[in-house]
């Protein structure tokens, strides 16, 4: 029973955090078609925002507005300077954002150094949950992520902005012709997406290794999840997170961490090859 609870919680935790990480890319790639290879670097930027707050001796909560600001401002800058010229040219966004990713990695490396940074947990300790002791921070994090997704889901279905984004994604020319400022809406969407990645960085920083190259793993996992789940829907995002996170947890438990990683890669390659439009596609 305890074993089931442990694995269940680990699975839920892994799905939730993967979902949080991939959310930003789902917005930027799934809605705008920008293959943002710098996605992981925005997560990294969020984690370093947390580091800055910690080094300044400020309360950890302040890392959230800082990360949103840093990622939002940087997102605005690269949208204005690079991305807006490349919408609907996914291949070029792929290359350009890759250059941007290198830029961000090297920039952070020059500023903070190559070494691993440690970030203290603001909620240390464990609580008893279903008969097992589980880290408190992880439980709070899961609750936060569930609340975030629920809120987002309702907003996207009900709000006028949600409808406008859907309209722009489906038919940009018609959207502009009925009076939607697609350039502005795209920019706002892009900034929201990368800021979400930054938020994921802040929330995960105490739990993961923080260093300039940390973004790479998040980037690839995120792409794989989107490919597995399919683009453009929240359900697909969560399914993809569940499959990738579940495979990792299960294979790692049976064999070891490396096998889990290899298993995730293999599943991803198979999906990319056989079902590039995701598990729900009817192709």
């Amino acid at each position: 029973m305890e074993l089931v609870a442990t694995y269940g919680l680990n699975f839920a935790y892994s799905t939730a955090t993967l979902g949080l990480i991939v959310l930003g890319l789902a917005v930027v790639f799934g809605l705008l078609g920008v293959m943002n290879m710098a996605h992981g670097e925005f997560v990294m930027l969020g984690a370093y925002s947390a580091l800055m707050v910690q080094q300044a001796g400020l309360p950890y909560v302040l890392a959230i507005p800082l990360a949103l600001f840093v990622c939002g401002a940087f997102g605005w800058l690269i949208e204005w300077s690079v991305i807006r010229h490349l919408y609907r040219r996914p291949f070029d966004t792929f290359l350009a954002t890759w250059g941007i990713a290198i830029l961000m990695r090297k920039g952070v490396e020059v500023t903070f150094g190559r070494e691993y940074q440690s970030i203290d947990q603001s909620l240390p300790g464990t609580v008893e949950f279903f008969g097992i002791d589980y880290p408190a921070y992880r439980l709070v994090l899961m609750a936060l992520i569930v609340a975030l997704f629920a809120g987002l889901f309702v907003w996207y279905q009900r709000s006028n902005t949600g409808a406008r984004i859907k309209a722009m994604v489906e038919n940009p020319e018609l959207a502009a012709a009925v009076g939607i400022d697609t350039a502005r809406l795209s920019r706002a969407t892009f900034i929201a997406g990368v800021a979400t990645a930054g938020l994921a960085g802040v929330l995960l920083a105490p739990l993961v290794r923080v260093e300039p190259y940390m973004g790479l793993d998040y980037l690839l996992n995120s792409f794989f999840i989107l490919v597995v789940g399919g683009l453009g829907t929240l359900e697909g995002l969560l399914t993809g997170s569940g499959i990738i996170g579940g495979a990792d947890v299960v294979i790692s438990a049976i064999f070891d961490k490396t096998a889990g990683y290899l298993g995730v890669l293999t599943i991803s390659i198979l999906f990319l090859w056989l079902r590039p439009d995701g598990i729900f596609s009817r192709r």
């Binding site: 489906e170 038919n171 020319e173 959207a175 502009a176 012709a177 009925v178 009076g179 350039a183």
Partner: peptide, 24 residues
Amino acid sequence: APAHGRARQGMGYAPQEGVVFDNL
């Protein structure tokens, strides 16, 4: 002027193809 600006000035437009947003 961009297309959305013209629409806001009072141009209504029904195109030949891709006439509505299917997902809405």
